[in-house]
C-alpha cells in the first residue's frame, strides 16, 4: 500500500478555486517533485498536507488512515527560523516543548541532525549570523527533529542566491539516500529531473501530468506541460 494517498482534494479561496480535485499516491522512500507556474495550486496542496489550510473536500491518508499533523514536516521558502534562538535551540525547541524523549536525548539528536546537514560548527550561531543556505539547512534539521514520515519543501531554494542553492539541494539528496519520503515543490527543473522518483506538473488546480522524470520531462503527453517546460528551459 502506498504511504500517502491523496484523494479528490479541493480548496477554494473566496471565489478562486485553487485546487479542483487533486489525487495521487506516494510510496515510502520516494521523492515527489511538484512543478508548475505560480498560481497553479502547488503551494496550496503542500499547505493542505501540512494542515496549514483545511481542504473543502477530499481526504489525505497516511498508511491508509486519516493523516495527522505530526506525520508531515514542512520546510518553508523563507526558512522561518526563530530569530531569538540559536541553531541548536531552533532544532530542539519543539521536541522539548512536546516532550519527545528526555532532555539529553533531544540535545544529542539535535546536535546530530545539525551535523547531518553540515552545520556541526554552527550549533550556537543565531539565525542572523548564518547565510541563507545555512539557515535553510537549520530549518531542514528542525523539521527532521519531529521525525515526520513525509518531509515537505515549499520552494526551498527560491529565496537563496544561486551560489547557495547547491548546499541545500545536496542536503535533500542526502536525505533521499537515507530513504526519507519527500515532497518538493520546486522551480529547479534540473534538480527535479535528477532527484525525483515521481514528478507532478500542476496547472489550474489539477494534476496535468504525473510520471517519472523521464516521462514528464522528455516525453510530456500534455500540450500544457510541453509549453511550460519549453518556457522553463528557455528561461534557464
Amino acid at each position: 500500500m502506498a504511504l500517502l494517498q491523496v484523494n479528490g482534494l479541493q480548496k477554494q479561496f473566496d471565489k478562486a478555486q485553487v485546487l479542483r480535485g487533486v489525487s495521487f499516491t506516494l510510496e515510502q522512500g520516494q521523492v515527489l517533485a511538484i512543478i508548475g507556474s505560480s498560481g497553479s495550486g502547488k503551494t496550496t496542496l503542500l499547505r493542505c498536507l501540512n494542515f496549514l489550510e483545511t481542504p473543502d473536500s477530499g481526504e489525505i491518508l497516511v498508511g491508509g488512515k486519516p493523516a495527522s499533523r505530526q506525520q508531515f514536516g514542512l520546510v518553508f521558502q523563507n526558512f522561518n527560523l526563530f530569530p531569538q534562538y540559536t541553531a541548536l535551540e531552533n532544532v530542539a525547541l519543539a521536541p522539548k516543548l512536546l516532550k519527545i524523549g528526555n532532555k539529553s536525548d533531544i540535545q544529542t539528536r539535535a546536535e546530530n541532525l545539525l551535523g547531518q546537514v553540515g552545520l556541526a560548527d554552527k550549533l550556537d550561531a543565531y539565525p542572523w549570523q548564518l547565510s541563507g543556505g545555512q539557515q535553510q539547512r537549520v530549518a531542514i534539521a528542525r523539521a527532521l527533529a519531529m521525525q515526520p514520515e513525509i518531509l515537505c519543501f515549499d520552494e526551498p531554494t527560491s529565496a537563496l542566491d544561486p551560489e547557495l542553492t547547491d548546499e541545500v539541494l545536496r542536503v535533500i539528496r542526502g536525505l533521499k539516500q537515507k530513504n526519507h519520503t519527500m515532497i518538493v515543490v520546486t522551480h529547479e527543473m534540473a534538480f527535479a529531473k535528477c532527484v525525483a522518483d515521481v514528478v507532478i506538473y500542476m496547472a489550474d488546480g489539477v494534476i496535468e501530468e504525473m510520471g517519472t522524470p523521464e516521462e514528464v520531462f522528455d516525453n510530456p503527453k500534455s500540450e500544457k506541460t510541453r509549453a511550460f517546460l519549453t518556457r522553463r528551459f528557455d528561461a534557464e
Binding site: 501540512n50 494542515f51 496549514l52 499533523r69 505530526q70 508531515f72 514536516g73 514542512l74 518553508f76 523563507n78 522561518n80 527560523l81 526563530f82 530569530p83 531569538q84 525547541l93 519543539a94 516543548l97 512536546l98 528542525r142 523539521a143 519531529m146
Partner: peptide, 26 residues
C-alpha cells in the same frame, strides 16, 4: 510575520506555546 506562527504550527506547537515561546520575545 505569519511565518513564525506557521513554523510553530507545523512543528506541532499549540498557539499559546508559539505565542509564549516564539512570538512574545520578538
Amino acid at each position: 510575520s505569519q511565518g513564525q506562527w506557521e513554523a510553530g504550527q507545523v512543528l506541532g506547537l499549540s498557539r499559546s506555546q508559539t505565542f509564549f515561546r516564539v512570538v512574545l520575545l520578538q
